[in-house]
Simulated scan of single mutants.
Amino acid sequence: MKQITAKEVETLINEGKKIDIIDVREDFEVATGKIPGAVHIPIGYIEFRMDELDKSKEYIIVCHSGARSGAVTRFLEGHGFNATNMSGGMVEWEGEIE
Results as ranks from 00 to 15, higher is better:
residue 63 C to D: 13
residue 88 G to H: 08
residue 71 A to K: 14
residue 83 A to R: 06
residue 46 I to H: 00
residue 79 H to A: 08
residue 19 I to N: 03
residue 9 V to K: 00
residue 71 A to Q: 12
residue 30 V to E: 10
residue 77 E to S: 14
residue 20 D to L: 14
residue 26 E to M: 05
residue 21 I to V: 02
residue 47 E to K: 14
residue 36 P to M: 08
residue 50 M to L: 07
residue 90 M to N: 03
residue 42 P to D: 01
residue 84 T to E: 01
residue 33 G to Q: 05
residue 88 G to K: 03
residue 12 L to T: 01
residue 77 E to H: 11
residue 78 G to R: 06
residue 41 I to W: 00
residue 27 D to C: 11
residue 85 N to M: 09
residue 83 A to H: 11
residue 55 K to L: 04
residue 32 T to F: 09
residue 51 D to L: 01
residue 47 E to D: 15
residue 93 W to R: 04
residue 75 F to R: 05
residue 71 A to H: 14
residue 61 I to S: 02
residue 63 C to E: 02
residue 25 R to A: 03
residue 15 E to N: 15
residue 61 I to T: 10
residue 64 H to M: 13
residue 80 G to M: 07
residue 68 R to C: 07
residue 56 S to F: 01
residue 80 G to Q: 13
residue 96 E to K: 12
residue 89 G to R: 10
residue 28 F to D: 13
residue 62 V to S: 00
residue 81 F to G: 08
residue 17 K to H: 14
residue 83 A to P: 04
residue 31 A to H: 07
residue 56 S to C: 02
residue 78 G to A: 07
residue 97 I to S: 15
residue 23 D to I: 01
residue 41 I to H: 04
residue 20 D to I: 12
residue 14 N to R: 07
residue 13 I to C: 08
residue 24 V to G: 05
residue 5 T to Q: 05
residue 54 D to V: 00
residue 15 E to Q: 15
residue 75 F to V: 03
residue 80 G to S: 13
residue 94 E to A: 04
residue 77 E to C: 12
residue 28 F to N: 09
residue 1 M to P: 10
residue 73 T to M: 07
residue 78 G to T: 08
residue 68 R to V: 14
residue 15 E to P: 04
residue 70 G to R: 06
residue 15 E to I: 05
residue 38 A to G: 10
residue 98 E to R: 11
residue 92 E to C: 06
residue 56 S to D: 03
residue 74 R to H: 10
residue 48 F to A: 15
residue 48 F to Y: 12
residue 9 V to R: 05
residue 12 L to V: 11
residue 16 G to W: 07
residue 3 Q to R: 15
residue 16 G to C: 04
residue 47 E to I: 08
residue 63 C to I: 02
residue 55 K to C: 08
residue 11 T to C: 04
residue 59 Y to C: 01
residue 34 K to G: 13
residue 19 I to M: 02
residue 34 K to D: 05
residue 73 T to K: 13
residue 84 T to Q: 02
residue 74 R to P: 03
residue 2 K to Y: 01
residue 44 G to S: 11
residue 64 H to R: 08
residue 86 M to W: 02
residue 26 E to S: 09
residue 24 V to A: 06
residue 79 H to S: 03
residue 7 K to R: 14
residue 88 G to Y: 08
residue 87 S to A: 13
residue 16 G to H: 02
residue 81 F to Q: 01
residue 50 M to D: 03
residue 65 S to R: 08
residue 68 R to H: 04
residue 52 E to F: 04
residue 57 K to G: 04
residue 97 I to R: 09
residue 88 G to R: 07
residue 69 S to L: 04
residue 28 F to H: 13
residue 35 I to C: 02
residue 74 R to Q: 12
residue 83 A to S: 10
residue 78 G to S: 09
residue 35 I to W: 04
residue 7 K to F: 09
residue 37 G to P: 07
residue 41 I to N: 05
residue 12 L to Q: 14
